[in-house]
Write a protein that binds this DNA or RNA. Structure first.
Length: 115
DNA sequence: CCCATGACTTGAA
DNA sequence: TTTCAAGCCATGG
């Protein structure tokens, strides 16, 4: 295991776990994950976790995580700015102007789906 | 050790 | 309806 601190590992682990549960061709939001973890207002940490997920194993589908409006706010943190969109479109998720088309339908909320 | 910042969200003014 | 501020907490200077 990685050389993360204890608390970090715990929180990040959960974020990764949930992120990996997002079905193929579906997306979720930072807030939804945070909410599922019980910390509805730590969406920022979810984003921070995504930033660290680059080195996470197994890999985390960070491209399926967007903000609550379905915007690809984290695209700039990928290897290339357009990688996120390409990955999504490769799964059949349409992206227009950095926003997920039909986000309301494609949105996958662990709090509800995993009930 | 203290301060600022960030892949966010929500609720109040 | 739009704008502002606060809460989350790890990380870096």
């Amino acid at each position: 295991m990685p050389q993360y601190s204890k608390t970090t590992t715990s929180f990040f682990e959960k974020v990764y776990e949930v992120a990996r549960l997002v079905p193929y061709g579906r997306v979720t939001s930072y807030g939804d994950i945070a909410n599922y973890l019980g910390t509805g207002k730590s969406a920022r940490m979810v984003g921070w976790a995504m930033n660290a997920c680059r080195t996470a194993m197994p890999p985390v589908p960070a491209h399926r995580v967007v903000n609550r409006l379905g915007w690809l706010t984290g695209k700039g943190h990928f290897e290339t700015p357009d990688l996120m969109q390409k990955l999504l479109e490769a799964e059949g998720v349409k992206v227009k102007d950095n926003k997920v088309v039909e986000f309301d339908k494609l949105r996958w909320q662990p709090l509800i789906e995993l009930n």
